[in-house]
């Protein structure tokens, strides 16, 4: 099945990013294709490479980047939501791309299942 994932919440403040990551990982491990992960609203904050995390906690951005490298998953960060929150090309981590909201529409049409993670 083709899965789409929509993330509406920032990292650390809420468990949503963790749930989305664990769901995405379990889905690819079961042999599903993840068409795209779309980061919207405060979800765009998952993409910043400026995160500096204590060593005994998970590094949410690096974890996303590693998952994408391993499984070739596309991450799109909504440009309108990102601009509002100071997330611009210079701070976006490896394997994340800034893109238009139309890519969420495409995902909603294309994916067999769209799963939203939110606060």
């Amino acid at each position: 099945m083709k899965f789409g994932i929509l993330i509406l919440e920032g990292p650390y403040q809420h468990e949503a990013s963790d749930s989305a990551y664990n769901f995405a990982k379990a889905a690819v491990e079961k042999g599903h294709e993840i068409s795209r992960v779309f980061f919207y609203q405060d979800g765009v904050l998952n993409a910043t490479k400026l995160m500096d995390v204590q060593r005994d906690d998970r590094h949410i951005q690096e974890r996303w980047t590693d998952l994408s490298k391993e499984h070739g998953i596309e991450y799109i960060v909504c440009v309108a939501a990102a601009k509002r929150r100071g997330i611009v090309d210079e701070v976006v981590a490896e394997n994340f791309k800034i893109g238009g909201l139309g890519m969420l529409t495409d995902l909603a049409i294309e994916a067999d299942r769209l799963v939203t993670f939110r606060a």
Partner: peptide, 13 residues
């Protein structure tokens, strides 16, 4: 989590 994925296979979410 694998079971969670299974629920989403069977149902829209």
């Amino acid at each position: 989590y694998s079971g969670f994925v299974g629920l989403v296979e069977e149902n829209k979410a």
